[in-house]
């Protein structure tokens, strides 16, 4: 579904990504792990066309993204739930959701999207008319995921959905990611610092260090890998 070949990204003189190659197949949950500053968010932003490539190629469903603009991706079925939630604080929950479905043509599809959002996160239905900025951190994260789900994406990219959440909510978010994958049939690319949870809830994983993929494998293999256990799992 998604293929990256030798992707490089630079910010001025700083190399954020150096020759990253990876793939995500349909139906998978793939985790991308790494420390702060390893380049995880840059990778998602490169896929979403928010930062230009210094080299390499990205294909989504066999189509090169080289000439695709950021705003066209939603229409192609690629949703990106960015780091730090980035909900629109002055828009109501409902307006936030409607923006998530901005590229959806029909009112019908929009209504179905809202239904799906409220099925995944019932609390959003209660908060419908509240401004996004007045929600709690956990609710904002739910809104961010629900907003990305409005287009019924083929591929959902989640950037640190567990960041800053209470342990109980972290479990809930990862369960929802699983449900989105199994029940809605959405392929997921999950960026996380929380390697423990991410490896438990994914099929495969890549580990990024200083802009390079240093390890790749099934999540089960990586959970047993000595280096991973030391560096990322804290055991």
């Amino acid at each position: 579904m998604l293929e990256l070949a030798d992707v490089s990204v630079t910010y001025g003189a700083v190399e954020a990504l150096r020759g990253v190659s990876m793939r995500v197949a349909a139906g998978e949950v793939v985790a991308l792990l790494g420390a702060n500053g390893a380049g995880k968010s840059s990778l998602l932003r490169a896929i979403s066309r928010l930062v230009p490539l210094a080299g390499g190629a990205i294909n989504f469903e066999g189509r090169s993204l080289a000439r695709v603009a950021a705003h066209e991706l939603a229409g192609m079925g690629l949703a990106h739930c960015p780091e730090g939630r980035r909900i629109f604080p002055d828009l109501t929950v409902e307006e936030n959701l409607d923006l998530g479905g901005y590229s959806v043509g029909s009112a019908d599809a929009l209504a179905r999207g809202r239904e799906r959002a409220c099925r995944l996160f019932p609390v959003l239905a209660e908060r419908r008319r509240q401004k996004g900025g007045t929600l709690s951190g956990g609710e904002q994260q739910m809104l961010a995921v629900a907003r990305a789900m409005m287009i019924a994406p083929k591929l959902l990219m989640l950037d640190e959905p567990s960041l800053g959440l209470a342990p109980k909510l972290i479990g809930q978010i990862f369960d929802t990611v699983r449900r989105i994958n199994r029940e809605e049939g959405v392929t997921v690319l999950l960026v996380e610092q929380n390697a423990n949870e991410a490896l438990l809830h994914s099929d495969r994983a890549y580990i990024l260090e200083q802009g390079r993929i240093v390890l790749a494998g099934t999540s089960e293999e990586l959970r047993r890998d000595e280096r991973v256990r030391k560096a990322y799992l804290g055991v």
Binding site: A74, P82, Y102
Partner: peptide
Amino acid sequence: TRFGRAMRALSQDPDAAALMGVNV
């Protein structure tokens, strides 16, 4: 309107608006 909603979203966060499919 849908256009107005896109304007307000863009004013709050242009990158996030683009990710939603808003042609900035």
